[in-house]
Design a protein around this nucleic acid. Structure first.
Ligand SMILES: [Mn+2]
Ligand SMILES: [Mn+2]
Ligand SMILES: [Zn+2]
Ligand SMILES: [Zn+2]
Lengths: 132, 132
DNA sequence: TTATTATTAGTAATTATTCCTATTAACTAA
DNA sequence: TTAGTTAATAGGAATAATTACTAATAATAA
């Protein structure tokens, strides 16, 4: 199957750059707002389209946390997240489940596990301390 | 803080019963369709309202898997999920992360971890075998 | 009973996302 | 270069999921 030729556009590279640089796991709307500063005529549909394309290509990742709309993550290596229910901050955790844990579940189920998503929820250090 | 008095209604108990019995992690719309069979005049807004209330009271749980709308889970004890990307089935996993793993991340972050969500994605046994 | 008001049905409104289409511009090959 | 091809875009309409609104209803308390 011949893959669709892909053209390189200002719009696409700006969207990628924004997500790659961001440390906040921005929503499509947030990416759009930032993108407008560099390219005032860019449209929201273009942002959505490119976010999907870039995710499909593995250049960014889609992440979904509870009670929030879909967000985008420029860190493409496997990692986990912590979300603060008080201030909403999302922190990256460079850990990952032991391969043995995943393998054990896989054989229990007789399934193929391709990936997983692990998100912790609670109160971050800052919020914990300011509440004390 | 005086908690709002809560009345017991047919609508609410039917919604609870449906989610508690279901093994499919149904969406609000699916709960609505089933509820109509028992109570044809029940409205969609009532289903949504009661799903939120019941989740708040801890009698059911909201679960969100990638690429899907919010779903509801009658299994209230802590557990994990496996989602098949081929047939869409969601299986319950009665396992949970070792307390030591959670405690370690908690102390690394200086945060309070209240709960976590762990979802595995891949191809279930049935789909794996039928593809062979 | 009767009064109070939480809850409901039905519908309008909102939010997030996707779809549509005429136009633009990235690439290709002369 | 230039001209042809068509992927990609801007802008707006359409859709899907959820929430908000409101007059009527019914669960509870007095
Ligand atoms: Mn991340
Ligand atoms: Mn479950
Ligand atoms: Zn916080
Ligand atoms: Zn399957």
């Amino acid at each position: 199957m011949p893959s669709t030729p892909r053209r390189s556009t200002k719009q696409r590279s700006i969207v990628l750059e924004i997500v790659a640089r961001a440390k906040t796991h921005p929503t499509a709307e947030e990416v759009f707002t930032i993108a407008r500063k560099k390219l005032p005529e860019i449209s929201l549909a273009t942002v959505y389209r490119n976010l999907h394309l870039l995710a499909e290509e593995g250049k960014i990742r889609e992440v979904q946390f509870e009670g929030s709309t879909l967000r985008y993550d420029g860190m493409t290596m496997e990692h986990e997240h912590f979300c603060c229910r008080s201030c909403g901050v999302v922190e990256d955790l460079p850990v990952s489940l032991p391969a043995a844990t995943v393998a054990s579940i896989q054989s229990q189920l007789g399934a193929i596990i391709e990936r997983y998503s692990l998100d912790y929820y609670g109160v971050c250090q800052r919020c914990k301390e300011s509440a004390a």
